[in-house]
Design a protein around this nucleic acid. Structure first.
Ligand code: FES
Ligand code: FES
Lengths: 144, 144
DNA sequence: ATAATAAAAGATAAATTTGTCTTTTATTTT
DNA sequence: AAAATAAAAGACAAATTTATCTTTTATTAT
């Protein structure tokens, strides 16, 4: 569904959100340990998220990553997916045509579109704050 | 969403269905040209489909691939996806855990499950015969 | 200013997926 | 039986994704 990079991105963002909510800035090492991801690869992904203004990065001692509390409810999964995987999940065709199209649809177009649109809606209406709540409560997990 | 191999598999199956409905057995060259896929790679995929009893393959002169007319309405997209990509799309976790689990769910589990289940339902209730109808009528396309 | 810290950037490397080429096997026609 | 046809099988190669390692830059504390 999503690339590995995107999966790590979502996990990392949720973890940073939980910590930022408690005014804890977190470093790369911390993050990759907590979400069980390769450290250097995670660094690249965090850079992308930072460039896309999804997280803030601070260099130097006591540096790390954080998310503004006021932004958390405005960051949704769609923004993260777009930042890492681009819009292929929205514009791509279920059978692999470069672009999905109503004019020249593939055989599964009508049925695929329904699912894709629901996925899109889910990603757009799920924000990082709500996801962080379940995690903080211990109801959900970032690793096993 | 699906692997390239799986996309080719679905396209090929639909094309073979259309032709089989008109009692035309079709060869690899024909298929890969029609669905615009790499020939040798397509051959591997057709082998998989044949091993999984989704299509029949016949060797030798006037050989090729075909689907029993009576089976067409019983072959659904789910079977094709399972044959090529396995069950990751059903059992996999949206955030990359090996197995999705109710006991130890990831933060997006509840929301992801809804979409995944709808995808599953769509794949299970869409059969090859109905997809081949739109194609034969010229309403849908296997290439652009 | 200097040293220490932590992320950014860039260069490689491993793994996986996608794609190709050659040889073999099965089947049919002559 | 021999030749021709077409898929199966196996080995190989390219491309992409995932992952690692090293050097540089920015920031802070001493
Ligand atoms: S054209 Fe294939 S999904 Fe729209
Ligand atoms: S545990 Fe992640 S989707 Fe179920």
């Amino acid at each position: 569904m999503f690339s590995k990079a995107c999966e790590y991105a979502i996990r990392a963002t949720i973890y940073i959100a939980v910590q930022s909510n408690q005014d804890n800035r977190v470093g790369l090492k911390d993050i990759s340990k907590e979400i069980d991801s390769p450290e250097a690869f995670t660094a690249k992904i965090l850079q992308q998220l930072s460039k896309n203004n999804i997280i803030n990065s601070i260099k130097g001692p006591n540096g790390g990553f954080e998310i503004d509390k006021k932004d958390m409810s405005k960051i949704n999964l769609s923004q993260i997916v777009m930042a890492i995987d681009g819009d292929t999940i929205y514009k791509g065709c279920g059978l692999g045509f470069k672009q999905c199209s109503e004019k020249q649809p593939c055989p599964v177009h009508d049925k695929f579109k329904v699912v894709r649109d629901e996925l899109k809606h889910m990603l757009e209406t799920t924000n990082v704050l709500e996801l962080s709540v379940g995690l903080k409560k211990g109801l959900t997990f970032l690793h096993r």
